[in-house]
Design a protein around this nucleic acid. Structure first.
Length: 238
DNA sequence: GCGACAG
DNA sequence: ATCTTGTCGC
């Protein structure tokens, strides 16, 4: 007989693929070009029971990066697990090479997670990227897991403003290619930029983001992870 | 050369 | 992303 649930204290999330992180800008770009060829832009999963939300913030006071992962039950959206870790900065922020700065702490945090998510919603772009390999795609390929790129602002691409109603979406285009969707998660609020991370289609990605954003502009995954990261940086001062 | 530029 | 005050829009 086997257990139905993962037992606490038994980490299960490990990258399937590894590569160095102390790279030069040129090497980092080369890595993106190589790994970018392995991104899958179609649905490739069965049941999605748990969804992970990931967010990283820079704590100026300690010059460190704080990464938080929140695991939600895909049906109820209740939090089932959450993890926070602190790490040093290994790479500067360079538009287009964002993942080389934020993935190290994120990978470190995933090693503490005991509930394996079936989908990860990232705070950053997927293939809506110069080399079609943004943070969401990078994370998806390394862990070989479905991921969605969800940015609050645009990295690249042109589009026409989607209608002001919840669910409206317009294609995000770069070099005559649809690289994502500009999605209105809440009526009369700024849209968010959704793109394929790995092993999911743009349509399915948008459907999930809408389901995850019943009351706010940002999906609950991102909102909760962001909240956790901020309460960690802002230690109790009362 | 100039502007743009996920977090 | 972080740091900040006033200001604009619904």
């Amino acid at each position: 007989m086997r257990k139905l649930m993962t037992e606490k204290g038994e980490p299960t999330m490990e990258p399937m693929l590894h590569h160095r992180w102390d790279l030069s800008e040129e090497e980092a770009m080369q890595t993106q070009q190589t790994l970018g060829k392995t991104v899958i832009k179609e649905d490739q999963f069965t049941t999605i029971r748990y969804i992970a939300g990931v967010d990283v913030a820079y704590a100026k006071e300690s010059d460190a990066l704080i990464a938080a992962i929140v695991i939600l039950d895909a049906h109820s959206l209740n939090v089932v697990e959450s993890v926070v870790v602190k790490d040093t900065v290994h790479f500067p922020y360079i538009p287009g090479l964002f993942s080389f700065r934020e993935l190290p702490p994120i990978i470190m945090a995933f090693k503490q997670v005991t509930t394996s998510p079936d989908l990860v919603v990232c705070d950053g772009q997927g293939i809506a990227h110069p080399r079609r390999f943004g943070l969401a795609s990078h994370l998806g390929v390394l862990f070989d897991i479905p991921t969605i790129g969800c940015g609050k602002t645009r990295l690249l691409g042109e589009y026409t403003e989607p209608d002001q109603i919840r669910g409206a979406v317009s294609p995000l285009i770069d070099q005559d290619e649809v690289v994502g969707g500009v999605l209105r998660t809440q009526a009369n609020t700024k849209p968010i930029y959704v793109s394929v991370g790995h092993r999911i289609s743009l349509q399915t990605a948008c459907d999930w983001i809408i389901k995850l954003s019943p009351n706010y502009r940002l999906p609950e995954t991102t909102r909760l992870a962001d909240q956790l990261v901020n309460q960690t940086i802002r230690q109790p001062s009362e």
